[in-house]
Design a protein around this nucleic acid. Sequence first.
DNA 1: AGCAAATATTTGCATTTGCAAATATCGTGA
DNA 2: TCACGATATTTGCAAATGCAAATATTTGCT
Lengths: 151, 151
Amino acid sequence: MLPLDDYVPYLLNRAGARIAASFSDEVRPFGITLQMWRALAALTDRDGQTVGELSGRTAIEISTLSRVLDGLQRRKLVERKRAEDDGRVVTLYLTPAGRTMTRRVIPIAERYERVAIAGLSARDVATLKRLLRELYANMDKLCANRAASDS
Amino acid sequence: MLPLDDYVPYLLNRAGARIAASFSDEVRPFGITLQMWRALAALTDRDGQTVGELSGRTAIEISTLSRVLDGLQRRKLVERKRAEDDGRVVTLYLTPAGRTMTRRVIPIAERYERVAIAGLSARDVATLKRLLRELYANMDKLCANRAASDS
DNA sequence: AGCAAATATTTGCATTTGCAAATATCGTGA
DNA sequence: TCACGATATTTGCAAATGCAAATATTTGCT
């Protein structure tokens, strides 16, 4: 049979959905959505990324991301620049207001990290992070294979 | 600063989004969505659940779930029954067609489990499952606290 | 140089989502 | 028993999402 509580994708989805819902509530007062925050955070981490890179890093579907960026741009938190060397590519930069927004939200994000891993040992947390990264890499490989076999 | 690749909610969201997107592609040919599958799987695990219970178990927002159930009912995969002892409650049952659908999709789900955890030791997998369950419980506590303080 | 294929991003359109309000039923205390 | 608050589910409506097609630019081939 199907032991649901022992099935990794289910556990992952469920935990992810719960934390996403809570965090959405937290950033709403700032006038941004969870996806907007995820894009902002990824841009804070590294400036000047392209839309495609950002999509890969955040796992936000690229056309969705394009509209998330519309919102961020309208709110003057992010700037889009057409790259000079390759006119197809759009590079993304935080505005000063975007940086301010990030500074304000980071404490909340840090609180969520603490709440999420409450009661876990440092060793467990390190393991969890490593495993989530490996899992992501595994799914990436699958995507690549599927893309290759579609052609 | 914000070491994004070391931040649990981000890693979780990212891995969850990626696996969800791939799995959606897999169940689409069966005419169902990922959320429909998650509901079906949870009902296979235990029959006769209420809408609220199912929402809690799947972390699908309850009004969304209500409409997911509309879809499942229209496809004759799930039946809604008003409970006899409490007229507010709706209990949910798989139809034979629902059970057939589940039987067909389970092999795909099992393949995804294998792909997701490829390269991880049995010990690591056990740890991952335990940690994901604890994390979910932690977020549940947070939700409960927030709900209490809102009143 | 010139054109077809490849790559990056955006947009059209239909579906899905979720907050808030509505609806339906139950439980409790006067 | 009759209101009134609590609980369970559904629905209204606006926003978010994602597939497929459109657009814009570059690269490779001749």
